[in-house]
Design a protein around this nucleic acid. Structure first.
Length: 442
RNA sequence: GCGUUCGUAGCUCAACGGGCCAGAGUGCCGCGUCGUGACCGCGGAGGACUGGGUUCGAGUCCCAGCGAUCGCCCCA
């Protein structure tokens, strides 16, 4: 017994007009922020070669790949957008003028079991800057996230970013535990990303697992976990190596955030490392301040992904911002707007003989850029008024035999009930241009 | 992957400890004079997740599948 083909597959959503309006509303805000920050929109195939995602650091995102074999090809639905983006950048590496700033809102997939608010598919707004090595890029991205929060009218304290630097962690470990095994750093990060989920003891155990990818001594594992509890930049500085480059960058980033006016919305937190293997530098995530929801967005610097995938080295930094968690937060905060259907006008022919005039009228209104539903049937006036009302139309124009004879359409303002007559084009010496209430768009 | 609870009209929910026409609100359609919507009144259509089992008889009990839910777990 399979699942009914009439139901959407597990973990997927249908978007009826109501939901689609909410989604479009959210995406419009994403696009508005991207526009304000000068980012260009890109997209890539939903299906990629599975090999694009095959990294060996034990990431969940790779374990949960939605993949399949077809005609000897091993394909996967994209679980995230960054590898596709890297592929696109690499393909035109010689021709692109860096730095480039690109955004996208891809639908991403992962094949995993369901729990509350977790589906197998989501849309993830991505903003990335390629070819800018300095933390001025991180600052732009973080400012964009806050601009989005503001544009969504979230209270200023509703969303907080916690931020860290993998480079700082790597510097601290380079002298010791990772001296001979730098390749163990990525899996180490993947393991410690689980700290607040599985607890310190479990993380230590995994780090010290002799058969695991990291294989620290018990003492080293304990030291690493101790480092993660630092939540203060000054304390981190005391623990950091002297003349730490990563620390200097972090300090610079906080300075820049202060100039953006966003320093109060960001806090250092050494336990933030993110679960993706390719991050190399600054990493961050945004959460609701109440701490009730999962991460709203996350990102960081991934300066070596291009070369890992076979391109020339290019630095990069970006974030992903999913549609699900922010939706929950907006709902909790009462910030999801009512989004009824809207039409400027509905036009009806009361009998089939008036359709030509109705088509002409609708055409004129549409040329002005108005949103016009031309009724495809010939409803009775009563029905037409109800339909226009339900459709959120501002006005209903109707043409019946009476109107046709006089060369006019009758119009009713649905809100005020005011009625007026409008000459039909080609049937009167006074075409529609005489109207003043619907000026042409500039 | 494991465990919880659950699956009744499009939606939100009732009732019945197996048996007579399974109800309500909302939504949808129609009518309230055939050319004037929203409010109101009246009427109508529409349902037991799927499959199997037990039984004289099952929406109600049992099993499986599918789906949801909460928790574990985990990520975005």
């Amino acid at each position: 017994m399979g699942s009914s083909p009439l139901k959407p597959p597990r973990g997927t959503r249908d978007f009826y007009p109501e939901e689609m309006r909410a989604r479009s509303w959210l995406f419009a805000r994403f696009r508005e922020v991207a526009h304000r920050f000068g980012f260009e929109e890109v997209d890539a195939p939903l299906v990629e070669h599975a090999e694009l995602y095959q990294r060996k650091a034990g990431e969940e995102i790779v374990d949960q790949l939605y993949h399949f074999e077809l005609h000897d090809r091993h394909l996967a639905l994209r679980p995230e957008f960054t590898p596709s983006l890297a592929r696109m950048v690499i393909a035109r590496q010689g021709a692109l003028r860096f730095p480039i700033r690109w955004f996208s809102i891809p639908q991403c997939w992962r094949y995993e079991r369901m729990t509350r608010g977790r589906r197998r598919e989501h849309y993830q707004w991505n903003m990335d800057i390629w070819g800018e090595p300095s933390v001025s890029a991180e600052a732009e991205l973080l400012a964009a996230i806050f601009t989005c929060a503001d544009l969504l009218e979230l209270p200023r304290d509703a969303l907080r970013v916690r931020l860290n630097s993998r480079a700082l962690l790597e510097e601290s470990l380079r002298g010791g535990v990772l001296r001979d095994r730098p390749e163990a750093f990525a899996p180490l990060c993947v393991i410690i990303d689980k700290l607040d989920k599985v607890g310190a003891a479990s993380v230590q155990e995994q780090l010290a697992d002799a058969k695991g990818p990291v294989g620290l001594s018990a003492g080293e594992a304990e030291d690493v976990v101790a480092l993660l509890s630092v939540k203060d930049l000054d304390e981190a500085k005391r623990l950091a190596p002297e003349r730490s480059e990563a620390m200097a960058e972090l300090e610079r980033l906080f300075e820049l955030l202060d100039h953006y006016g966003d320093a109060d919305r960001v806090a250092f937190d050494a336990s933030v490392v993110r679960g993706l293997a390719y991050y190399t530098g600054v990493v961050f995530e945004a959460n609701d301040t109440a701490g009730e929801l999962r991460a709203i967005c996350g990102g960081g610097r991934y300066d070596r992904l291009a070369e890992t995938l076979g391109g020339k080295p290019v630095t990069a930094v970006g974030f992903g911002f999913g549609d699900a968690v922010i939706h929950e937060l907006l709902a909790d905060q009462g910030k999801l707007p009512e989004l009824p259907r809207r039409l400027d006008a509905m036009v009806v022919a009361l009998d089939e003989g008036q359709r030509d005039a109705a088509i002409a009228l609708a055409g004129t209104l549409r040329e002005r850029g108005e949103s016009v539903e031309l009724a495809t049937g010939t409803p009775r006036l009563k029905r037409a008024l109800t339909d226009a009302d339900r459709a959120g139309a501002q006005r209903l124009y109707w043409i019946g035999a009476e109107e046709r004879e006089r060369g006019v359409a009758r119009a009713r303002d649905l809100a005020t009930g005011e009625e007026s007559e409008h000459p039909l084009e080609g049937e009167s010496e006074h075409p529609l241009e005489g109207e003043s209430e619907h000026p042409l768009e500039a």
